[in-house]
Design a protein around this nucleic acid. Sequence first.
DNA 1: ATAGGTATTATTGTCTGTCAATCTGATTGA
DNA 2: TCAATCAGATTGACAGACAATAATACCTAT
Lengths: 226, 226
Amino acid sequence: MELLRWGMDLDLRITRKTVQQEVVDKLRQAILSGTFAPGHRLVEADLCEALGVSRSSLREALRGLQAEHLIEIIPNRGPHIPVLTWEDAEEIYEVRELLEGEAALRCAARMSDDDIAELAERLETFHRAARDENADDLADAAAAFYELILSRCGNKIIQQMLAGLLARISYLRKRSMSLPGRALKSHEEMRAIHQAIADRNTRDARKAAMKHVSNARASAKQTFPV
Amino acid sequence: MELLRWGMDLDLRITRKTVQQEVVDKLRQAILSGTFAPGHRLVEADLCEALGVSRSSLREALRGLQAEHLIEIIPNRGPHIPVLTWEDAEEIYEVRELLEGEAALRCAARMSDDDIAELAERLETFHRAARDENADDLADAAAAFYELILSRCGNKIIQQMLAGLLARISYLRKRSMSLPGRALKSHEEMRAIHQAIADRNTRDARKAAMKHVSNARASAKQTFPV
DNA sequence: ATAGGTATTATTGTCTGTCAATCTGATTGA
DNA sequence: TCAATCAGATTGACAGACAATAATACCTAT
């Protein structure tokens, strides 16, 4: 009886999101999936109608997304999808290299055997997507691979920061992953990361992860007009 | 004539903050200065009255602060100042060590001679505060020292991330800085950082910065009840 | 025709007020 | 003492209003 009530409460806690939270999630997903092009203006009235929420709820959600750097809000001009310059992107890749290297190192030191097996599976999923050359599947598979590393690195701050950085360059990653040969090259690099983690070799894990990000940055740079 | 109009526009752009932004700034300052104790509940109605703004503006500001992790908002219970567990704080110190090491390394590679002189001045200011043993002056002087390193590291992402992390542990830093001997020890470590940067020794700069954070973590740990 | 200024419209920033849902704390009853 | 219940406080969400600002269309004079 007690347990049942607890279970219900727990269920509700998890399920019952506030409207504001749902709006944040929906918009975040829309932004990450590329529904809005960089530079696209987000008009409050339109979003309210599309989402079926009031302006107050929407505006609160927008403030949250602004803090995540997923949108920019200019006073009196409203929110829009930020347009990354290559300089901005490069700084993100630099920090990502640092943090992702650290995350991989930590995974090599502390990941469970089950997690390593799961990582191998996700790697294989990515490999299949790479051969099929489906851009969306590729992005999803890569995200799943990273997600496991982030969530098992043993430091929530690193996890959150990296997740935020990955989000901000998601469309860059999608774009550069479509460069000829990049997907398979990427798979090789990810395989090296998995191998080092499986070998419990912290130094190699960091090195492999950093190399991977470094190559990803080079690919992304190619997709930028001069 | 044209210039005059430009000047006015520029002035307005900088000066005219939105109400929401002002509220964020005011509340952030209040939180960082320790006006609210950890765990303190922030009641919307009270804040509205104290700040003289409407609930809409206030709530938008709160969402921003939530995203900065300066407050937590629990659905239907409202916002409160987060209570850091030592585990949370430790993870922050771990990342801070990584990022601050990198920032110092970059400063050693790229800081101008003028900046290095300025860094020496701020170090001396900190030294004076350390001898006077004024907790608030100490915190301000330390913040000024870090601020210069962050702003000159050449990567805005690192700068923002570190600023956010420092904010989240500001009251820990204030507390641990008051431990007997810690301020002077801290000064020694900061002097080492400055020296390595002045010598353009990137490796030493990183090592000194990491050591500094590592010691700060140990001091902070002492201030936690078992 | 066009540069420069003006009117119009669209959109945002902010406030007020309302109401239901939920939490908190006190009261009650067993 | 403990659990159930109730009342007050607080939040979540909405609608509507209006001024300030930005964006656009429209002039007008040269």
